[in-house]
Amino acid sequence: MAQKAYPAELKAAQYWAELTDSRFSILGIRFGLDSLVGLVPFLGDAIMLLPALRIFWLGRQLGVPFSMQTRMLFNILLDLLIGSVPVIGDLFDLLFKANQANFRLIESWWQQQ
Score class of each variant (00 low, 15 high):
residue 29 I to G: 08
residue 30 R to E: 13
residue 31 F to C: 02
residue 32 G to Y: 06
residue 32 G to L: 07
residue 32 G to S: 05
residue 32 G to C: 07
residue 32 G to V: 00
residue 33 L to R: 03
residue 33 L to C: 02
residue 36 L to I: 13
residue 38 G to V: 01
residue 38 G to C: 05
residue 38 G to W: 11
residue 39 L to F: 14
residue 40 V to P: 10
residue 40 V to A: 15
residue 44 G to R: 05
residue 46 A to P: 01
residue 48 M to Y: 10
residue 49 L to N: 06
residue 51 P to L: 03
residue 53 L to T: 00
residue 53 L to C: 04
residue 53 L to H: 02
residue 53 L to W: 05
residue 54 R to V: 06
residue 54 R to G: 02
residue 55 I to E: 07
residue 56 F to L: 03
residue 56 F to R: 09
residue 56 F to E: 02
residue 57 W to V: 00
residue 58 L to I: 07
residue 58 L to H: 11
residue 59 G to E: 00
residue 60 R to L: 05
residue 60 R to F: 02
residue 60 R to V: 04
residue 61 Q to Y: 07
residue 62 L to R: 08
residue 64 V to K: 06
residue 64 V to W: 11
residue 65 P to S: 06
residue 65 P to N: 03
residue 66 F to Q: 07
residue 70 T to Y: 07
residue 70 T to F: 04
residue 71 R to T: 00
residue 71 R to S: 02
residue 72 M to S: 00
residue 72 M to H: 00
residue 72 M to G: 00
residue 74 F to N: 08
residue 77 L to E: 11
residue 77 L to H: 14
residue 77 L to P: 10
residue 78 L to Q: 13
residue 78 L to G: 04
residue 78 L to Y: 12
residue 79 D to C: 11
residue 79 D to A: 15
residue 80 L to V: 04
residue 80 L to A: 13
residue 81 L to Q: 07
residue 81 L to K: 11
residue 81 L to C: 15
residue 82 I to D: 08
residue 82 I to M: 10
residue 84 S to H: 14
residue 87 V to M: 12
residue 87 V to C: 08
residue 87 V to Q: 11
residue 89 G to I: 03
residue 90 D to L: 05
residue 90 D to R: 13
residue 92 F to N: 02
residue 92 F to Y: 08
residue 92 F to D: 03
residue 95 L to T: 11
residue 97 K to G: 08
residue 99 N to Q: 15
residue 101 A to E: 08
residue 101 A to R: 15
residue 101 A to K: 14
